[in-house]
Amino acid sequence: MNRHDEFIQTFTILGRDFSRAGSVSTEIKEILQEIGVPSSIIRRVAIASYEAEMNVVMYAQKGELTLTLNPETIKIEVEDEGQGIEDIELAMQEGYSTATEEMREMGFGAGMGLPNIKKNAHIFIITSSPGVGTYLKMIFYLDEERAA
């Protein structure tokens, strides 16, 4: 059920596509800038969407990111088909990473992605089925006073 005042756009993210990695987050940032979202919120969204996008690139075959905007909130959902996460609590720990040596050489695999998403989204939900895929939902309130 779509609200009449809602804007929804879906983006595809390809696993292992390191050369285009970050392009979906960049597009989202441009959309938010165009509609005049406060820069403090754009910064939060940029960090969280980039980390979520990179996790699909690094750990999944493909994923879909859906951006939903309404006058109160920015919602970003990322659903991927991939290896999934066995132990979410462990994955959420700062510093935990299963990134390959090759990824680490490129500066990925700090194990800060999921913790950074949690820090920056006002609401963050993650669920996963090992061997099937992972689903993330992040919500950002446009009115930061209300979010606090």
């Binding site: 390191f18 990695a21 960049t26 940029a46 490129m106 500066g107 990925f108």
Partner: peptide, 15 residues
């Protein structure tokens, strides 16, 4: 940084 691959550009733009 000493990173040289293309992902550094997206990071710089996003930030």
């Amino acid at each position: 940084t000493l990173q040289t691959h293309v992902n550094i550009v997206a990071v710089a733009k996003l930030k």
